[in-house]
Simulated scan of single mutants.
Amino acid sequence: MQTASTNIGDRMGRSQELSDSKRGPVIGGHLCNKSIRDISWLLNIPRSTVSGIITKWKQLGTTATQPPSGRPCHMTERGQCMLKRTACRNRQLSAESIAKDLQTWCGLQI
């Protein structure tokens, strides 16, 4: 009989992502009417992770990792942020020097 490890070092860390090979058995256990606690114990995964996988599967129909939400970073937006940051940090800079920095940093023609 295999027992679950209680050593904290053996459990999944916060920064690690659960592999597809462990997400499948979570859904399989859920479809076999196993409790979240039982699935967590059998696979040695935190209960919150098991619950999150099941919730995601119910809502999206998949357990695959989704791309992050939020505004994508475009070159012009980066240039605008860089321009604003440079101008606010050193108000003594001339427009020519800021334009030169912007050209070298973003590749934008001004």
Rank of each mutant, 00 (worst) to 15 (best):
I8G: 05
R47M: 13
A87P: 03
I54R: 05
G61S: 01
T76Q: 15
R47V: 14
M75P: 12
P67H: 07
D20Y: 08
R85W: 07
Q16Y: 01
I45D: 00
N44Q: 13
H74L: 13
W41N: 02
S19Y: 00
S94G: 07
H74I: 05
Q92S: 14
V50N: 03
I53Q: 04
L93Q: 10
V26D: 00
L60F: 14
S5Q: 03
I36P: 07
R71K: 14
S40W: 00
G52E: 09
K58H: 10
T65G: 06
I54L: 11
L31G: 08
R14V: 08
S5M: 04
L93F: 05
S94L: 06
D10K: 00
G24K: 12
I54T: 07
M82G: 02
P72D: 04
N33T: 14
I36S: 08
I98Q: 10
A95K: 04
I53M: 04
L31K: 11
C73S: 12
R78T: 05
S15N: 06
R91G: 02
S40I: 03
E77A: 15
N44D: 14
V26W: 00
P46S: 07
S51A: 13
Q66G: 05
T76W: 13
S15W: 00
L42V: 14
I98W: 01
S48Y: 11
M75G: 08
P72H: 07
I53H: 01
I53E: 02
C73F: 14
P25V: 01
N33E: 11
R91V: 02
G24H: 05
S35A: 08
L60G: 09
L18I: 14
K22F: 08
S19T: 13
R37D: 15
R23N: 05
E17D: 06
R47I: 10
W57S: 06
G9S: 10
G29R: 00
Q80D: 15
G28S: 07
W41R: 10
T63M: 03
P68M: 13
N90A: 03
Q92P: 03
S48R: 12
N33D: 11
E96P: 00
T55V: 12
W57Y: 14
G13N: 07
Q66T: 11
D20G: 06
S19P: 09
T76R: 15
Q59K: 09
Q59L: 12
S51N: 09
G52S: 15
S35T: 15
Q80C: 11
W41V: 09
V50G: 02
A4Q: 08
M82P: 01
T63S: 08
W57V: 03
P67D: 01
A4L: 10
R47Y: 08
S35L: 11
R91P: 07
T76A: 12
M12C: 14
L83D: 13
K84P: 01
G52Q: 12
K100I: 03
D20S: 09
C32S: 11
G24Q: 12
G61L: 04
I53F: 02
Q92H: 14
E96G: 04
T65A: 11
A64R: 14
R37E: 13
N90F: 00
N90M: 03
P46G: 04
R23V: 04
G79I: 00
R78S: 11
I98D: 12
P25H: 01
G13W: 02
S94K: 06
Q66N: 09
R14G: 15
I45W: 04
L43C: 03
L42K: 07
R23I: 02
S19W: 01
